[in-house]
Simulated scan of single mutants.
Amino acid sequence: MSDIGDPVKAATKGAKHEAPPGLKLSLLSNGIDFIQSGIEHFFLKDDPDPRSHKYAILHLFAGVLLLLKERLRQEHWSLIFKDVARAGESDAKTVDFDEALQRLKSCSKIRISDRDAKLLRKAQLLRNRLEHYEFELNLQESQNLIGRLSEFTYLFLRDNLATDLERHLSPEVWERLRDLREIARRLEQERHEAWLRRTAKYRELSSEDLIAIREELEPYHPKHNPDPVDAQWCDSCGTESLVCVENGIAVCTNPECRAIETVGECMRCYAPVIGGGDLCDGCQDYINSDNS
């Protein structure tokens, strides 16, 4: 395949192969330092406080970004710079999270699964909120996120950077880290049981009750109801019949369907998201088009 039209391949093809002194050390060692800080800060405590949750997320994500750059550096050191033609210059900027993922996909054999990409995207959005906004953490959700991020870093270091995270953690923390999968499974089971309890009354609604819920939606009015609550699309029956009945729950008012869905909030624009995802369709399309 020709390198014409591909600025990354074109620039790296003729670039010097000798990386600036200390580049390898700073990326990998600093990444491990951030990860160690985030994990130790969180897992050394039996009951981590909100501040520990916050800094675990901030430091883990910072460390993960450095690991992604280190893997790019191993492919070719100039790939970590936004403009590879300026690679090594003192004021040259390095790639951000989205660019790192895109270049790993384009220029290496590393493939970040859709599941892991979604995890990292969620961590990035939460990191941004924690850094730039006044934001109250859901500690159970952040604990699950921290656990999954820790698992990702352990596997990425082992599989792609030939580094054993255990060697960089205290025995006590490593012992706790090994239990993460069990913690994640238990949290998922508890969420499922809580969901069944919360939605039990909606599974017992009559056809008349469902129709009444739909009819109670107030239509648009420029003065009295300028921002109406509309029925959402139901994937189960293919009709616009899903209605949010309470925080986090939507019910399909089609008596032949009766689907019950989670309702999340878009972490970018705060619009409702059916299915409990992190981004609405509009924001997801915007990010995908921006990174294509």
Results as ranks from 00 to 15, higher is better:
G5S: 10
V8K: 04
V8D: 12
A11H: 04
T12A: 10
K13P: 06
P21D: 12
G22D: 10
L25Q: 07
L28K: 02
S29G: 02
F34D: 00
G38D: 01
G38Y: 00
I39E: 02
E40T: 15
H41W: 01
K54C: 03
A56W: 05
L66F: 02
R71Y: 01
R73K: 09
Q74H: 01
Q74P: 01
H76L: 05
K82P: 02
K82C: 08
V84P: 05
G88T: 12
K93D: 04
V95I: 05
A100L: 06
C107L: 11
S108P: 10
I110S: 02
L120S: 03
R121H: 10
K122T: 13
A123Q: 09
Q124G: 07
L126F: 13
H132D: 13
S142E: 14
Q143L: 13
I146N: 03
S150W: 00
T153K: 08
T153N: 06
T153I: 04
L157A: 07
R158L: 04
R158H: 06
D159L: 11
R167S: 12
L177V: 14
R178Q: 15
R178G: 03
E182V: 12
E188M: 12
T199R: 12
K201G: 12
R203C: 01
E208Q: 11
E208S: 10
I211L: 00
R214H: 14
H221S: 15
P222G: 10
H224G: 02
H224Q: 13
H224N: 12
N225G: 12
P226K: 05
D227E: 00
P228Y: 06
V229D: 14
C237E: 01
T239A: 04
L242A: 00
V243E: 12
C244Q: 14
T253H: 03
I260L: 09
E261I: 06
V263H: 09
E265H: 08
E265D: 06
M267V: 12
R268E: 11
C269T: 07
C269R: 11
G275L: 09
G276L: 03
G277A: 12
L279K: 05
D285F: 14
Y286P: 06
N291L: 15
